[in-house]
């Protein structure tokens, strides 16, 4: 059997300059169900697909509120995300108490990045197995960041993490201009849900049980919609776009042509999708 000699700990480089434990942690994100984030400049929307471990069980929470102006969506090991969100909540409270100001989104995300980076350099520790999308509104505007267990953090206009998230990214790339010019939260949420729906496998649909919607922005506290509250958003989805199982997929109502003419893009993403989908079925511990 193939054995890798350079993945016993997170502090040893392979001869090719890779840290395998860190790369495995990044794989853990792909095991989790998808989360999508988009920002229009004045608002940020996070949507996520929830999974239940078994038919009788509850769905794992995918979006966590940090403060009135900040929240996160997760993909990967949910317990690791809880630890990180508790840390963020602590930082947010501290900022309010000591400085009487809300925590800056950039500061929040760099703080957890510092925490995650330590785990890639300390012997005996394990990198976090979760990726986060951090959404926040502060005095510098609306921000969306992606956090990775490697400790890297990047700001995005649109980002997707988790199983089959490439499909969502493809949607976001095609509709970037429409998303950036959104003035209403409603439009932004619809774009988010469209992207999220693209990550679903053939036999699945967005339902009020498995969908979480959240948003934050100008004059809008961070709000999470679950269960019955999601119905209003799913209704909007059906009125503005066709069902995804339809042969002619033209969810992006602003440009119909590329939807059919992007066979190459679809081809390149297809193998990855099936691979990720299969992996997701194996392991139910990630969300």
């Amino acid at each position: 059997m193939f054995r890798n000699n350079y993945d016993n700990d997170s502090v040893t480089y392979s001869p090719t300059g890779r840290l395998f434990q860190v790369e495995y942690a990044l794989e853990a994100i792909k095991q989790g169900s998808a989360a999508v984030g988009i920002t229009s400049g004045s608002h940020v929307v996070l949507v996520a697909l929830k999974r239940n471990a078994e038919e009788l069980g509850s769905y794992q929470k995918k979006i966590i509120k940090v403060d009135d102006h900040m929240g996160i969506a997760l993909a990967g090991l949910a317990p690791d995300a809880r630890v990180l969100s508790n840390y963020l909540r602590k930082l947010a409270m501290n900022s309010k108490l000591v400085f009487n100001r809300p925590l800056l989104t950039s500061k929040a995300v760099l703080s957890i990045a510092d925490k995650a980076q330590e785990n890639t350099q300390l012997y005996g520790s394990r990198p976090y197995g979760v990726g986060l999308l951090v959404a926040g509104w502060d005095e510098t505007g609306a921000h969306l960041y992606e956090f990775q267990p490697s400790g890297s953090v990047l700001e995005y206009n649109g980002a997707a993490i988790g199983a089959r998230s490439q499909a969502a990214r493809t949607y976001l790339e095609r509709n970037l201009d429409a998303i950036r010019s959104c003035t209403e939260i409603e439009e932004l949420v619809v774009h988010g849900l469209n992207a999220l729906r693209d990550t679903l496998s053939q036999d699945m649909e967005l339902t009020i049980q498995n969908t979480s919607v959240s948003f934050v922005g100008k004059d809008k506290d961070f709000t999470i919609h679950d269960n019955e509250d999601v119905q209003q958003w799913l209704d909007k989805l059906d009125s503005t776009s066709n069902d995804k199982n339809n042969a002619n997929d033209d969810e992006d109502d602003d440009n119909d042509e590329p939807a059919e003419g992007t066979a190459t893009a679809a081809d390149s993403t297809q193998p990855e999708l099936t691979q990720e989908g299969a992996a997701a079925d194996d392991n139910m511990e990630t969300d």
Partner: peptide
């Protein structure tokens, strides 16, 4: 350290 964009965030009330 955390304000790499130079937002000059620390003001008198803080």
């Amino acid at each position: 350290v955390y304000d790499s964009d130079g937002g000059h965030n620390l003001r008198a009330p803080h």
